[in-house]
Computed example of a mutant assay.
Amino acid sequence: MGQDWHTDPEVPAELYRKRLYFRPDPAEPAILHVRQLGNPWHRRTILFRDRLRAEPAVREAYEAAKLRAAEMHAGDDDYDDYTRAKSDFFRSTR
Rank of each mutant, 00 (worst) to 15 (best):
P40R: 09
R17V: 02
Y82C: 05
A69F: 00
D78V: 10
Y16N: 06
V34E: 08
T45G: 10
K86P: 00
R49A: 04
L32H: 13
R17T: 05
A13Q: 13
M1D: 11
R59W: 14
E55K: 04
G2C: 06
R23S: 13
H6A: 14
P12K: 14
D81Q: 14
V58T: 13
P9G: 08
K18E: 09
D81T: 10
D78G: 01
T93M: 10
R19M: 05
Y62I: 03
T45K: 00
P12E: 09
D8P: 03
T45H: 03
F89T: 11
E10M: 04
A74T: 11
E71P: 15
Q3H: 07
G38N: 11
Y79A: 05
G75V: 15
K66R: 15
I46N: 05
D4I: 03
Y21M: 05
V34C: 03
D81K: 07
A57Y: 02
Q36K: 12
R53N: 08
T83S: 08
Y62H: 15
E55P: 01
R17W: 02
Y21D: 00
D76M: 08
Y79D: 03
E63T: 11
W41G: 07
D50C: 13
F90W: 05
F89Q: 04
L47W: 01
V58I: 15
P12V: 15
R59L: 06
L52N: 09
Y82D: 03
E63C: 10
T7I: 12
K86G: 01
W41I: 05
E71H: 11
S87R: 07
Q36E: 11
W5S: 07
D80C: 04
E55T: 13
T83D: 03
R49F: 04
R49K: 07
R23T: 12
P9A: 11
L20R: 04
R44P: 02
I31F: 12
L37P: 08
A13L: 09
P40A: 05
A61I: 00
V58L: 13
D80W: 02
V11E: 07
L15N: 03
L37K: 08
P29T: 11
P40D: 12
H42Q: 11
F90S: 00
A85M: 11
N39K: 02
P29D: 01
D25C: 11
A70C: 03
A61H: 02
H42S: 05
D50Y: 01
K18M: 14
D80H: 00
H73K: 14
L15F: 12
W41F: 14
D80E: 06
I31Q: 11
D88Q: 15
Y16I: 06
A85T: 06
R68K: 12
A85V: 07
R35N: 05
K86C: 02
Y62S: 05
R91H: 11
V58G: 02
